[in-house]
């Protein structure tokens, strides 16, 4: 069980209010991702839930019980740190056993759970090594193993993949998703990488300066971003946002269209046109950066990989009209 509720939680460091009053519910078994730019308070929020920071005001409930003043150990949550925070002088086995040793779990039960976790995480061959003798990905798995054996009510991850290289990151991403499916335990995952957020989450919480900008499923956020911030943050490459005459023509203060919702065509007959700048060839797709469109400095377009334009070519752009997002003066979505 692991239903986590935040009620009017605030956090200030001295004079600085990092988290203004914030309400949030994370359902049991949900994979929630906190995402937002650097310094927006994701880690702080996670540490508040973990109990590593005290709330300035408000309440944190875990399974309905008030956990606001409980010490971290009593909350039944396990955390995986960005630096892994493994104990360097203990073997992998002892690292994984540590929380159980603290909880005075019987020896044979400890061994059973260690074997189980090691098997699930491919660590069986490394149990007698020290953390210093492991690769980054293996250390990450040890840290996860240490969290699993506690059988916590919820897992907390603070940017666990940011120290890994790109290939490994994709692999570990899948492993964590898999783990979530298997354990069906609540997980809260902090990242600033919106791809991680989109691919892993049941529910994404977009934060800006401690405020929740929007909460919803990945597709909800993708299809109906509530404001320009979320619109610009979710999706890769970013949504093209523009103001001015063209936006007015569409009946909005700010209008946005995603690169994948623009088709390239003949400049003479197209809705918009511009000059091709940089082309990024990914093989399957090509991203064109288009200038001089009269919309914004740069418009990004996603085209199939075989479409070929040279730098400086004129190009026509046809947006899918039903996929244009409209926002008002305050940046809020117009339905």
């Amino acid at each position: 069980m692991g239903r986590i509720t935040l009620e009017k939680v605030t956090k200030s460091f001295g004079e600085v209010e990092v988290i203004p009053p914030l309400d949030l519910t994370i359902e049991d078994g949900e994979f929630a991702v906190f995402v937002g730019p650097s310094g927006c308070g994701k880690s702080t929020l996670l540490r508040l839930i973990a109990g590593l920071e005290d709330t300035t005001s408000g309440h944190i409930r875990i399974d309905g019980e008030d956990a606001t003043d409980l010490p971290p150990a009593k909350r039944g949550l396990a955390m995986v740190f960005q630096s892994y925070a493994l104990y360097p002088h203990m073997s992998v086995r002892k690292n994984i056993a540590f929380p159980m040793k603290m909880a005075k779990v019987p020896e044979d039960e400890q061994n059973r759970r260690i074997e189980q976790a090691a098997k699930a995480l491919n660590l069986t061959d490394y149990l007698d090594r020290r953390p210093g003798q492991l690769s980054g990905g293996q250390r990450q798995r040890v840290a996860i193993g240490r969290a699993i054996v506690r059988e916590p009510a919820a897992f907390l991850f603070d940017e666990p993949l940011s120290n890994l290289d790109a290939a490994l990151r994709v692999g570990m991403r899948l492993e964590i998703s898999e783990l979530h499916k298997r354990l069906a335990t609540t997980m809260i995952y902090v990242t600033h990488d919106q791809v991680e957020a989109m691919t892993m989450a049941d529910k994404i919480v977009v934060l800006r300066a401690g405020n929740i900008e929007q909460v919803g499923s990945p597709l909800e956020l993708y299809k109906t971003p509530r404001n320009t911030f979320v619109a610009g943050f979710i999706g890769s490459p970013k949504m093209n946002l523009f103001e001015g005459a063209e936006a007015d023509k569409l009946g909005a203060h700010t209008a946005g269209v995603r690169p994948e919702h623009i088709e390239v065509g003949d400049p003479a007959s197209a809705y918009w046109s511009g000059t091709v700048g940089v082309a990024e060839h990914l093989g399957s797709d090509t991203f064109f950066h288009i200038h001089e469109t009269g919309l914004a400095d740069t418009i990004t377009v996603r085209a199939p990989g075989d479409v070929d334009y040279k730098h400086g070519d004129r190009i026509g752009l046809n947006p899918r009209m039903d996929m244009i997002h409209k926002f008002d003066q305050q940046g809020l979505r117009i339905q």
Binding site: A50, P72, A73, M79, F81, S83, A85, L86, P88, M102
Partner: peptide, 15 residues
């Protein structure tokens, strides 16, 4: 000493 190690131990239930 890395503070995160101490915090991890705290989460792990170490007095």
């Amino acid at each position: 000493l890395d503070q995160e190690q101490l915090e991890a131990a705290e989460m792990d239930g170490a007095s």
